[in-house]
Design a protein around this nucleic acid. Structure first.
Lengths: 207, 207
DNA sequence: TCATTTTTTGACCATATGGTCATAAAATAC
DNA sequence: GTATTTTATGACCATATGGTCAAAAAATGA
């Protein structure tokens, strides 16, 4: 048996080392992309040798896949939480705030996702065209209802969602650019962004 | 003399081959990133051999640099065109439309830029912190004036600009995701996006 | 036509990289 | 303590890649 079998119990060392490897890999994949990352770099940052790393994961690709899968699992939560029975404009403002928090707290995950999408989503296309699309369809339907009942401006709900994704993830993905233009500290940047966006959408979507 | 000297006149073949190489390189760099692109791939797509390619450009890095420099030259034009003496809300709506047109007509350039920024802007940081920042500062000042004179809502002009960049470039950079969710044709997608965004900002920024 | 310059190519090199393997060293179980 | 399992490593391999070079082939100019 060459690597930890599925059935055997997971040891403490396995848990720790695997976590360290994934952590290191997220760091490097998210800035250098898949091809731009070498196993040696990951191994170095995780504090072990390349063969040792390959003892815990069968391949570079498998590490990348695990990171992406994990990411997708939680990436859609903020949208799921949007509640049909709440006040439309407040629900959307709250959604924006949740997305901004994600960008602030998980910028590496946001960048990993961005790099994957820029490459044409080779690993996650099915998720986009399946579960993601279904969720967006459902929420778009809710928004159409809000518009029809006159509680929110009548706008294209799909592009509304896209614009929120774009504007919020921008603060993680284009962080360097934002910092080059603005030289406020991180807390200030995210607070100002949140304030601006909620104001824009609140006014722009009011009935 | 190993490669075309600076002083010698540029031949027709040089002009054509260089253009073909840059075109091919833009294609591949913009989806696979710098490290993810090999000279062989570029040479193949441009229809010549790798040594032949290196006869026209001294290195892979030089090709990448030229593409980025070219891009930055024109990338800021839409913002420069924003005219202080026009009607604030219309000027911003027109700016959004120009940016959407760029995303539609030059998606590869947009992605090349995005990949560079995601990597931490190793090649263009100075431009971001210099000319880009200066331009944004100037336009932000103009917007502050608009707000002060009561012709536009009082919002943070920096985050306003960021949100426009994000929302418009999204349609180039995250094209695959947009298409996975929406299955309308390209013209429809961009038209709807433009309509949604101008409506949102027009309402959101009205005095 | 013939000399000169420009363009193209095949062979080659050094290095980086993903991955394997046999074996050694730790850790664990009894 | 000893047997067994888990973990770690150095040596190694095949392939990919950026780049060089000498020489052939085309193009050009007189």
């Amino acid at each position: 048996m060459n690597r930890p079998a599925a059935q055997k119990p997971v040891t403490r060392i396995q848990r720790e080392k695997r976590a360290a490897i994934l952590e290191a890999a997220l760091d490097i994949f998210s800035t250098h992309g898949f091809r731009g990352t070498s196993l040696d770099q990951i191994a170095d940052r995780a504090g072990l040798s390349k063969p040792n790393l390959l003892y815990y994961f069968p391949s570079k690709d498998s590490i990348h896949r695990i990171l992406l899968d994990r990411l997708l699992d939680t990436w859609l939560d903020p949208l799921r939480e949007m509640n049909e029975s709440g006040d439309p404009v407040s629900e959307i403002a709250a959604y924006i705030e949740r997305k901004i928090s994600l960008a602030r707290d998980y910028p590496r995950e946001s960048r990993l996702f961005a790099v994957e999408i820029l490459r044409g989503a080779p690993h996650v296309y099915d998720t986009l065209a399946g579960p993601l699309r279904d969720l967006v369809d459902r929420k778009a339907e809710v928004m159409r209802g809000w518009s029809k009942s006159g509680r929110m401006a009548d706008v294209d709900p799909y592009h509304l969602i896209f614009s929120i994704w774009a504007a919020t993830q921008h603060y993680a993905d284009f962080d360097i650019q934002v910092r080059a233009v603005l030289n406020t500290d991180e807390d200030r940047r995210f607070d100002d962004a949140s304030r601006f966006l909620t104001a824009l959408y609140t006014r722009g979507l009011a009935p």
